[in-house]
Design a protein around this nucleic acid. Sequence first.
DNA 1: AGATTGACCCAAA
DNA 2: TTTTGGGCCAATC
Length: 114
Amino acid sequence: MVESFNAAVYQVVQRIPAGKVATYGQVAALAGNPHSARFVGYALHSNPSPGVIPCHRVVFRDGSLAPGFAFGGPDRQRGLLEEEGVLFIPPVSGHRNAGDPGWCVDMEHCQWQA
DNA sequence: AGATTGACCCAAA
DNA sequence: TTTTGGGCCAATC
């Protein structure tokens, strides 16, 4: 593997099946850097690769979305995920909700398992 | 050319 | 229980 960490991230994200979602940590680990979840999000933010990367399938560990989504807003993302069959659930108390207090992905049933 | 920030996640104090 | 710090790579100023 000689491709940059960035490229590895893109490969993993594209590998996520429809109707499933992966977390930044999950993608980072599959990319080969379990301790670099930060750069996963940054890679997508900086180099969305000609729109080939389904960033909307990448969510927080809690199931919420990144604060600065780039597809047109978090609303757009929820619609896309729902279209693919991802289940959404209201914010669960006792869980870390980081950014979007609106809706969270049902990680219990929709998290992508490599 | 060098320094800083940036879509995160986990562990320890 | 909450808060702080650490860890990594790449792009941008």
